[in-house]
């Protein structure tokens, strides 16, 4: 019970600090950005439970370049990881209390339902089918099908410029179908993997590669100086943060945190540290969808 008492004291001090900040003018902010803040949460809420535990389990991908990659050192890095850390900080959880668990595309719903992860930030596209099982905060990022060209190639500026050109994608994939539907005159060149598309571009056998910009950014990152993103997406994949379906309070809390992160520059910091290294222009953060 000692720790409870200490927590209460800490909460008191924190609220005092908040009052003080509110009174002082904007020029001299007391709290620093990285210091976990203490908020007051309703008893029995997910936020209160996590805050009290001082620990949170976050599902993320371990193999998605720039979003969630587990390095040789064992630490997980990427844009999703930064967003997750931002949310944990608002729960008053230190970075050491954030445990990342690997969630692949297939097990994300189960991880939420079974409580394997408290929330999931894993390039998780919001759609109605998934909403039947889980709740989504966000979106915090909108991915989309884009085009990759050789660095310095200015002939292709949008999907319409793909007409008559050799365009690479992966056989049997949705991006391949989409480009076939939207630009029927593009000469679709299909290989088994995207790295083969990169090789074919190097050889000049194809002029462009198309798939989700997230995958393309990973390829650009893996082959420095060779390729660049056109930056004209022609589909929308809004990435959300998965929580339990019925946990509306937690969802609202995460949405609040995202909006704060957009405003106070933490979103930009997260972007610049990760995706920004490959694609420096910060995209406009998407408006969160409170349904």
């Amino acid at each position: 019970m000692r720790s409870r008492g200490m927590l209460r004291t800490a909460a008191l001090v924190a609220s005092l600090a908040l009052v003080l900040t509110a009174c002082g003018d904007d020029g001299d902010k007391v709290e620093t950005k990285d210091e976990p803040k203490k908020r007051e949460f309703a008893a029995g809420s997910t936020m209160e439970r996590l805050q009290t535990a001082g620990k949170v389990k976050v599902g993320t991908k371990f193999d998605q370049p720039l979003f969630g990659v587990k390095g040789v050192s064992g630490s997980v890095e990427g844009f999703d990881v930064e967003i997750a850390k931002g949310i944990a900080a608002e729960l008053g959880i230190e970075e050491s209390g954030v445990e990342f668990v690997e969630s692949i595309s297939k097990n994300r719903e189960d991880f939420i339902v079974n409580g394997t992860a408290d929330f999931i930030v894993a390039t998780y596209t919001i759609n109605d089918k998934r909403k039947e099982k889980v709740g989504f905060a966000g979106p915090y990022f909108v991915a989309g099908q884009d085009i990759m060209v050789k660095k310095g190639d200015t002939a292709i500026k949008s999907k319409d410029d793909l007409a008559g050109k050799k365009v690479c994608s992966v056989t049997g994939s949705t991006p391949a179908t989409r480009v076939k539907e939207q630009v029927p005159t593009a000469q679709l060149t299909l290989f088994g993997t995207y790295t083969e598309c990169a090789e074919a571009m190097r050889n000049g056998q194809v002029q462009a590669t198309t798939t989700d910009n997230v995958i393309l950014l990973g390829l650009i990152d893996a082959n420095p100086g060779e390729f660049e993103l056109v930056g004209a997406p022609f589909s929308e994949e809004p990435y959300g943060i998965g929580v339990k379906k019925e946990d509306t309070d937690f969802r609202t809390f995460i949405n609040d945190v995202l909006e704060e992160m957009y405003k106070d520059g933490r979103y930009k910091d997260a972007y610049d540290k990760t995706l920004g290294k490959v694609q420096p222009d910060l995209p406009t953060p998407p408006a969160v969808n409170r349904y």
Partner: peptide
Amino acid sequence: ASLFAVIELTSTFDLLTDQ
């Protein structure tokens, strides 16, 4: 050859299954 940019029977199947 379907894995190496020839649109033949198997790649037709791959494209159709996605649609």
